[in-house]
């Protein structure tokens, strides 16, 4: 069985140097959240809002368009429906934010208070709870431990027990049946503890929101410290969001706009 060792050695290093060095985050060609350019928007046109399946796009108070990226499922329908180029496809996916308001386009950017996570900078333990996801988010969370992303190298680990966890990572729209197990998991975590909503379902309910079986994500269920919409968010987006939480990366989205 020694051949596996030789095979591994011969393969060399498969892990990307991103985010420390280089730009190979593995997301080349990925379509992210749509970008909205109000200057190109035609008055009294609701094409994008009508096409949006999750009411992420709505008519704003001033007759214009309001966009809530916390509700976006990245289906690209608005970019196809838009008669001008106001709603454009983009590769923006680094949407991890500390405040829910930062996902709403046009919100006044205010400095986000820093979390006291210094002690966890090089050792963060995550407990994941699937509260009714489609398994897309889980697929990407599992990918974090593949050799390409290799989350361990960043000092971030998944843990089996909530007793050892620092942050609760929740996916899914929170089905009624998962509400109690989710709360029990949170209650079992020691202080200080934080909560991260991964995927549009956990942020706002997403495509499955409401009805007889689902809630509205973590809204009104647990206090959320880190929001990451996406359907599903890709592994690089999850890494970026975790680094934002640890104050190791700057938050790139403010007031619904992505900075460089």
């Amino acid at each position: 069985m020694a051949f596996w060792t030789f095979f591994g050695l011969a393969q060399g290093k498969a892990t990307t140097t991103w985010p420390t060095r280089g730009t190979n985050n593995g997301q080349k060609g990925l379509l992210g959240m749509p970008r909205f350019d109000a200057a190109l928007c035609v008055p009294d046109c609701r094409a994008c809002a009508d096409a949006c399946p999750t009411a992420a796009i709505a008519e704003g108070a001033d007759g214009g368009i309001s966009v809530d990226y916390g509700r976006c499922v990245v289906c690209q329908l608005c970019t196809e429906a838009c008669p001008t180029d106001a709603m454009q496809p983009s590769s923006d996916w680094a949407f991890g934010v500390r405040r829910r308001e930062d996902l709403v386009l046009g919100t006044e950017p205010t400095p986000t208070p820093r979390l006291k996570t210094a002690a966890f900078r090089r050792s963060l333990h995550i407990r994941h709870v699937d509260a009714g996801s489609c398994n897309g988010c889980e697929s990407e969370l599992r990918a974090l431990n593949n050799p390409f992303y290799n989350l361990h190298r960043l000092g971030i680990f998944f843990t089996a027990s909530p007793r050892f966890a620092d942050i609760l990572l929740v996916t899914g729209p929170v089905t009624h049946a998962m509400l109690e197990p989710l709360r029990a998991t949170y209650d079992a975590m020691p202080e200080p503890r934080w909560v991260m909503a991964v995927g549009t379902c956990a942020v706002s309910g997403g495509i499955a929101e409401g009805g007889y079986a689902c809630g509205h994500g973590l809204e009104g269920v647990l206090p959320v410290d880190l929001y990451l919409p996406g359907c599903p968010p890709n592994p690089a987006a999850i890494i970026e969001a975790l680094l934002v939480f640890l104050n190791r990366s700057p938050q790139r989205v403010q007031g619904g706009r992505i900075g460089e």
């Binding site: 591994g8 990925l30 690209q76 593949n146 390409f148 992303y149």
Partner: peptide, 29 residues
């Protein structure tokens, strides 16, 4: 363990091919 890592690395390669072709790792939209 090496067998696990290699399988998941190949899965990642396949998902990156999906992205290049369709813009979605899950071939959506």
């Amino acid at each position: 363990k090496v067998g696990e890592a290699e399988g998941k690395l190949l899965e990642e390669r396949a998902k990156q091919i999906n992205t290049r072709l369709t813009g979605s790792r899950f071939l959506r939209s």
